[in-house]
Amino acid sequence: MARPTAELINALRQTAYNLKQGTPYQWGHMGGCNCGNLAQELTKLNKNQIHQYAMQRHGDWNEQAEDYCSTSQMPIDLLINEMLNAGLMLEDLKHLERLDDRQVLLRFPFEERFLKHNVREDVIKYMNAWAELLEEQLLEKITLPSIDAFEWA
Protein backbone atom coordinates (compact mmCIF):
# COMPACT_ATOMS: atom_id res chain seq x y z
CA MET A 1 0.00 0.00 0.00
CA ALA A 2 1.15 3.50 -0.76
CA ARG A 3 3.04 5.59 1.73
CA PRO A 4 0.52 8.16 2.98
CA THR A 5 1.72 11.60 1.93
CA ALA A 6 -0.15 14.87 1.65
CA GLU A 7 0.98 15.12 -1.98
CA LEU A 8 -0.52 11.76 -2.91
CA ILE A 9 -3.74 12.32 -0.96
CA ASN A 10 -4.23 15.69 -2.64
CA ALA A 11 -3.43 14.25 -6.07
CA LEU A 12 -5.98 11.45 -5.63
CA ARG A 13 -8.66 13.91 -4.57
CA GLN A 14 -7.85 16.36 -7.33
CA THR A 15 -7.84 13.60 -9.94
CA ALA A 16 -11.24 12.36 -8.71
CA TYR A 17 -12.55 15.93 -8.82
CA ASN A 18 -11.19 16.45 -12.34
CA LEU A 19 -12.83 13.25 -13.51
CA LYS A 20 -16.11 14.29 -11.92
CA GLN A 21 -15.86 17.63 -13.75
CA GLY A 22 -15.46 15.85 -17.08
CA THR A 23 -11.73 15.68 -17.72
CA PRO A 24 -11.05 13.28 -20.62
CA TYR A 25 -11.21 9.64 -19.55
CA GLN A 26 -10.41 6.68 -21.74
CA TRP A 27 -9.38 3.45 -20.07
CA GLY A 28 -7.48 2.15 -23.11
CA HIS A 29 -5.32 5.31 -23.39
CA MET A 30 -2.16 5.27 -21.25
CA GLY A 31 -2.50 8.98 -20.48
CA GLY A 32 -6.26 9.09 -20.04
CA CYS A 33 -6.94 5.95 -17.98
CA ASN A 34 -7.00 5.48 -14.21
CA CYS A 35 -3.23 5.66 -13.74
CA GLY A 36 -2.83 8.12 -16.58
CA ASN A 37 -5.14 10.65 -14.97
CA LEU A 38 -3.35 10.35 -11.64
CA ALA A 39 -0.01 10.62 -13.45
CA GLN A 40 -1.21 13.86 -15.04
CA GLU A 41 -1.87 15.30 -11.60
CA LEU A 42 1.39 14.10 -10.04
CA THR A 43 3.71 14.95 -12.93
CA LYS A 44 1.90 17.87 -14.59
CA LEU A 45 2.40 16.15 -17.96
CA ASN A 46 -0.59 16.02 -20.27
CA LYS A 47 -2.29 12.81 -21.35
CA ASN A 48 -0.64 12.78 -24.78
CA GLN A 49 2.86 13.16 -23.32
CA ILE A 50 2.22 10.31 -20.89
CA HIS A 51 0.82 8.13 -23.67
CA GLN A 52 3.79 8.91 -25.90
CA TYR A 53 6.24 7.97 -23.13
CA ALA A 54 4.40 4.74 -22.41
CA MET A 55 4.32 3.72 -26.07
CA GLN A 56 8.12 3.67 -26.18
CA ARG A 57 7.81 0.35 -24.40
CA HIS A 58 5.16 -2.36 -24.68
CA GLY A 59 2.22 -2.95 -22.40
CA ASP A 60 -0.38 -1.36 -20.17
CA TRP A 61 0.27 0.14 -16.73
CA ASN A 62 0.53 -3.32 -15.20
CA GLU A 63 3.31 -4.29 -17.60
CA GLN A 64 4.96 -0.87 -17.32
CA ALA A 65 5.14 -1.37 -13.55
CA GLU A 66 6.58 -4.88 -14.05
CA ASP A 67 9.23 -3.54 -16.45
CA TYR A 68 10.04 -0.42 -14.38
CA CYS A 69 13.73 0.19 -13.80
CA SER A 70 14.73 2.90 -11.34
CA THR A 71 18.05 3.53 -13.11
CA SER A 72 16.61 3.65 -16.61
CA GLN A 73 16.44 6.98 -18.36
CA MET A 74 13.38 5.95 -20.34
CA PRO A 75 10.71 8.64 -20.06
CA ILE A 76 8.07 6.23 -18.71
CA ASP A 77 10.44 5.09 -15.96
CA LEU A 78 11.20 8.69 -15.04
CA LEU A 79 7.45 9.34 -14.91
CA ILE A 80 6.81 6.28 -12.73
CA ASN A 81 9.69 7.36 -10.51
CA GLU A 82 7.93 10.69 -9.89
CA MET A 83 4.79 8.80 -8.94
CA LEU A 84 6.74 6.58 -6.55
CA ASN A 85 8.37 9.63 -4.98
CA ALA A 86 4.87 10.94 -4.19
CA GLY A 87 4.21 7.81 -2.11
CA LEU A 88 2.94 5.20 -4.56
CA MET A 89 4.29 1.67 -4.77
CA LEU A 90 4.50 -0.25 -8.04
CA GLU A 91 1.69 -2.54 -6.86
CA ASP A 92 -0.54 0.53 -6.42
CA LEU A 93 -0.34 1.23 -10.15
CA LYS A 94 -1.59 -2.27 -10.87
CA HIS A 95 -4.38 -2.01 -8.31
CA LEU A 96 -5.46 1.43 -9.48
CA GLU A 97 -5.73 0.30 -13.07
CA ARG A 98 -8.03 -2.57 -11.99
CA LEU A 99 -9.63 -0.89 -8.95
CA ASP A 100 -8.90 -3.97 -6.90
CA ASP A 101 -6.89 -3.08 -3.80
CA ARG A 102 -8.52 -5.02 -0.98
CA GLN A 103 -7.91 -2.33 1.65
CA VAL A 104 -9.66 0.27 -0.48
CA LEU A 105 -12.54 -2.01 -1.43
CA LEU A 106 -13.21 -2.93 2.20
CA ARG A 107 -14.21 0.70 2.77
CA PHE A 108 -17.34 0.13 0.68
CA PRO A 109 -20.45 -1.80 1.73
CA PHE A 110 -20.26 -5.32 0.37
CA GLU A 111 -22.75 -4.68 -2.44
CA GLU A 112 -20.69 -1.71 -3.68
CA ARG A 113 -17.30 -3.45 -3.82
CA PHE A 114 -17.65 -4.78 -7.34
CA LEU A 115 -16.25 -1.78 -9.17
CA LYS A 116 -15.70 -1.78 -12.92
CA HIS A 117 -12.17 -0.70 -13.73
CA ASN A 118 -13.18 1.23 -16.85
CA VAL A 119 -16.17 3.17 -15.50
CA ARG A 120 -15.46 6.81 -14.67
CA GLU A 121 -17.83 6.92 -11.66
CA ASP A 122 -16.21 3.83 -10.14
CA VAL A 123 -12.74 5.33 -10.61
CA ILE A 124 -13.90 8.49 -8.81
CA LYS A 125 -15.34 6.45 -5.90
CA TYR A 126 -12.18 4.35 -5.64
CA MET A 127 -9.81 7.35 -5.67
CA ASN A 128 -11.83 9.18 -3.03
CA ALA A 129 -11.96 6.10 -0.79
CA TRP A 130 -8.23 5.55 -1.23
CA ALA A 131 -7.51 9.19 -0.36
CA GLU A 132 -9.62 8.83 2.81
CA LEU A 133 -7.77 5.66 3.79
CA LEU A 134 -4.37 7.29 3.25
CA GLU A 135 -5.44 10.39 5.15
CA GLU A 136 -6.46 8.26 8.13
CA GLN A 137 -3.09 6.48 8.02
CA LEU A 138 -1.26 9.80 7.82
CA LEU A 139 -3.19 11.26 10.75
CA GLU A 140 -2.40 8.17 12.85
CA LYS A 141 1.30 9.01 12.48
CA ILE A 142 0.92 12.56 13.73
CA THR A 143 1.37 13.17 17.41
CA LEU A 144 0.98 16.61 18.86
CA PRO A 145 2.80 17.62 22.00
CA SER A 146 0.70 17.43 25.12
CA ILE A 147 -0.34 20.64 26.78
CA ASP A 148 1.97 19.74 29.67
CA ALA A 149 4.92 20.18 27.33
CA PHE A 150 4.30 23.91 27.09
CA GLU A 151 5.53 26.31 29.70
CA TRP A 152 3.00 28.94 30.54
CA ALA A 153 4.19 32.37 31.44
Rank of each mutant, 00 (worst) to 15 (best):
4 P>N: 07
4 P>W: 15
5 T>L: 06
6 A>Y: 04
13 R>E: 04
17 Y>K: 14
20 K>I: 00
21 Q>K: 14
23 T>Q: 14
24 P>N: 09
27 W>N: 07
28 G>M: 04
34 N>H: 10
34 N>R: 09
34 N>L: 05
37 N>K: 14
41 E>D: 04
41 E>T: 12
42 L>V: 06
52 Q>D: 14
55 M>N: 15
57 R>E: 01
57 R>N: 02
59 G>R: 12
59 G>T: 06
66 E>K: 15
70 S>H: 09
71 T>D: 07
72 S>F: 10
74 M>K: 12
76 I>D: 03
77 D>V: 01
79 L>F: 00
79 L>G: 03
81 N>H: 05
83 M>S: 06
85 N>R: 15
85 N>W: 05
88 L>Q: 02
98 R>I: 02
103 Q>Y: 15
104 V>D: 02
105 L>E: 02
107 R>G: 04
108 F>R: 12
110 F>R: 13
110 F>G: 03
111 E>T: 08
112 E>T: 03
113 R>P: 11
113 R>I: 00
118 N>V: 00
120 R>H: 01
121 E>M: 05
124 I>N: 07
125 K>E: 03
127 M>R: 07
130 W>D: 02
132 E>H: 12
132 E>D: 15
134 L>D: 04
134 L>G: 03
135 E>V: 04
140 E>W: 11
141 K>C: 07
141 K>N: 10
142 I>A: 04
145 P>K: 08
147 I>E: 07
147 I>S: 01
148 D>S: 10
148 D>Q: 11
152 W>F: 09
153 A>T: 04
